[in-house]
């Protein structure tokens, strides 16, 4: 009880900026960054795989397109987004520390948007460049831009979706995995209606849409390609954020012990 009052006077931040900074500082600790590193390394390994099999395809771009469609956009990108999406909300709700944010006069839309922006930023500096780098490693440098854009838009959409799931259930990881691998991969493969709303299928469509010579077998009819797929995913993102905002006002935060 002997501390002396020597005050520091930092500049005041807006609520929104405070939420974004807090999310980056607290919700993505070193362990999460390490967990994120794994899918990023996975993306690079898929680049190496494309390089290894490119003699089976007419061009390196085609080899990379085949590997990226099945490996990067259907597997490592959703996993990376899950690690991020769970960290920015679900993990905090489970840990019992979300009340520090929720129990304030901050509008819920600012909380949702702030968390999503922070999560999106993390995706933009991890899985999106890793996907582009994979293209370079595969010798398909001309596909790097498309891979970056597809991974960026896809993971941002996923982060919004996982935030919404975090507002609905405490078992964010389980439900998110179920949606990605059961609903999107299994049902989405059979039903075009589901694939049209799926970040996995739509990010793949973005990637293919921006390639000069995409493999015909990867193009799925009934799903918008390129820029149209970007718009589709933006709509999915907005809807997910609206749902998250609606649910956030009704969260029941019963503590870490419960």
């Amino acid at each position: 009880m002997t501390d002396q009052l020597q005050l520091t006077s930092p500049r005041r931040r807006s609520r929104f900026a405070a939420i974004v900074i807090y999310t980056l500082q607290s919700c993505i600790p070193p362990k999460r960054w390490f967990a994120l590193l794994l899918p990023c390394v996975g993306a690079l390994l898929f680049g190496l795989l494309a390089l290894a099999v490119d003699n089976h395809f007419p061009t390196a771009e085609r080899a990379f397109a085949n590997v990226a469609a099945e490996g990067i956009f259907a597997l490592v990108m959703p996993i990376a987004a899950l690690v991020i999406g769970d960290a920015v909300l679900g993990a905090e709700v489970r840990a019992g520390t979300f009340h520090f944010t929720w129990l304030s006069p901050t509008p819920t839309w600012q909380i949702v948007l702030g968390r999503w922006l922070a999560g999106s930023f993390v995706a933009l500096v991890t899985i999106a460049p890793a996907s582009a780098l994979a293209a370079v490693i595969a010798g398909a440098g001309s596909s790097a831009g498309a891979a970056f854009l597809a991974a960026a838009v896809g993971s941002m959409s996923y982060v919004a979706l996982f935030i919404a799931i975090g507002c609905i259930t405490r078992r964010t990881a389980v439900w998110s995995l179920a949606i990605v691998f059961l609903v999107e991969r299994l049902l989405g493969a059979a039903l075009t209606g589901i694939a049209q709303l799926s970040p996995t299928w739509e990010s793949r469509a973005i990637f293919l849409g921006y390639l000069d010579d995409p493999p015909a077998r990867l193009i799925r009819s009934g799903i918008p390609q390129g820029g149209a797929a970007v718009v589709r995913l933006l709509i999915v993102t907005v809807v997910a954020l609206v749902v998250a905002n609606w649910r956030m006002a009704r969260l029941r935060l019963s503590g870490a012990a419960d």
């Binding site: 006077s9 931040r13 405070a18 807090y22 944010t101 006069p105």
Partner: peptide
């Protein structure tokens, strides 16, 4: 962080 969320003006 709490001060920012509550709009506390005194730095």
């Amino acid at each position: 962080y709490t001060a920012d969320l509550f709009g506390v003006t005194d730095p």
